[in-house]
C-alpha cells in the first residue's frame, strides 16, 4: 500500500470533520424558525435520501454481486413490512437479510 494508513485515517477524519465544523459555524447565525433553517432541513433529508438510493441502485462492494431486481424486491418488501408492522424498524431489517439470502440462493 503506497499511502501510510495513519495519514489516510487522519486525512479522512479531517475531510469529514470539516463539514461538521462548518455546519456548527453556520448554525450560530441561523434561527430554527427561519426559512433558511427549513431549507437546510430539506437539503439534509434529500442528500441522505440521495445517498441511500445510490447505495441501493449503484452499490459498491459486496452488494454489487446481487442482481438489481433482487435488490429492488428486498427493499420494496422490507418497506411493505415496515408499514404493516406499524413502522417497526427491527422486522424489516431482519427480514431484508433473510429475503436476500433466499433470493440470491435461488438466483
Amino acid at each position: 500500500m503506497e499511502v501510510n494508513i495513519i495519514l489516510a485515517i487522519i486525512v479522512t477524519s479531517a475531510a469529514t470533520y470539516l463539514s461538521r465544523f462548518l455546519g456548527v459555524v453556520t448554525s450560530e447565525k441561523i434561527k430554527e424558525t427561519s426559512k433558511i433553517f427549513r431549507w437546510f432541513n430539506c437539503l439534509a433529508y434529500s442528500t441522505l435520501a440521495a445517498l441511500i438510493a445510490r447505495v441501493i441502485i449503484f452499490p459498491e462492494g459486496n452488494l454489487l454481486e446481487i442482481d438489481y431486481s433482487i435488490r429492488f424486491i428486498v427493499v420494496f418488501v422490507s418497506l411493505l413490512i415496515f408499514y404493516l408492522t406499524k413502522k417497526n424498524l427491527v422486522y424489516p431489517t431482519v427480514f431484508s437479510v433473510i429475503l436476500l439470502s433466499i433470493l440470491s440462493s435461488l438466483d
Binding site: 469529514t16 463539514s19 462548518l22 455546519g23 453556520t26 433553517f37 437546510f40 442528500t47
Partner: peptide
C-alpha cells in the same frame, strides 16, 4: 471523502440550531 461526506454540512445546520 469530503465529497461523500459533504451531506454532513446540511445535516449539522439543520440540527445545531
Amino acid at each position: 471523502v469530503w465529497l461523500v461526506n459533504a451531506r454532513l454540512y446540511p445535516m449539522t445546520v439543520s440540527l445545531m440550531p
